[in-house]
């Protein structure tokens, strides 16, 4: 049956330390799904404690949870895995509020988790596609810097996009 020794090959554990001191013990295969950690492991060799001063423990935990799911699903090379991952991704982003999404995206970007960034930016895009200009400014904390009249002119030119 499937109780072979393949799963028990030496899985090295890495210790990741978040900005608030929270530490996570993660299998190397899981953590190296993140490009930044992969680079650190490759460059700095066998350092077991990796400090991540830009990521808060709460969000690092979420990022690692995502990595773990994907690493697990990818080990058994089943055709249904894509479906499982998709379903799981959907669940993962479904109830994220804007603030969490923002911090998670920052963390994923900082850690170079390309696939996770794709997933999260897709979620952001789906949340903002129908929004008004004012809501976008609010969401991204942007102040309009147009000269008087400029914004009106652009609005007039693209009035159909505001219908």
């Amino acid at each position: 049956m499937s109780s072979s020794s393949t799963t028990t090959t030496t899985t090295r554990l890495l210790m990741l330390k978040a900005s608030d001191g929270v530490t996570f013990e993660v299998e190397e295969a899981v953590a190296t799904k993140l490009g930044a950690i992969n680079n650190m492991v490759e460059e700095e060799g066998s350092e077991d404690l990796i400090c991540l001063p830009n990521v808060n423990g709460k969000f690092l935990g979420m990022v690692l949870e995502w990595c773990k799911k994907h690493a697990n699903n990818n080990t058994n090379s089943d055709k249904g895995n894509d479906e499982v991952n998709k379903w799981w991704d959907k669940e993962f982003v479904m109830d994220l509020d804007q603030n969490t999404l923002y911090h998670l995206l920052m963390a994923a970007d900082y850690l170079s988790g390309t696939e996770l960034v794709d997933l999260l930016t897709e979620k952001v895009a789906s949340m903002i596609r129908g929004k008004k200009v004012e809501e976008i400014r609010e969401t991204f904390k942007i102040k309009s810097d147009f000269l008087p009249g400029q914004e009106e002119e652009i609005r007039k030119k693209n009035s159909w996009a505001f219908e």
Partner: peptide
Amino acid sequence: YSLPEDVVFTQILSRLPVKSLMRFKCVSK
């Protein structure tokens, strides 16, 4: 706080329908 420009512009905006983008020209210069 703000997202890196690359994330906002290349990653997020490239996933939006053109109509949204035409509207969002009004956000800032």
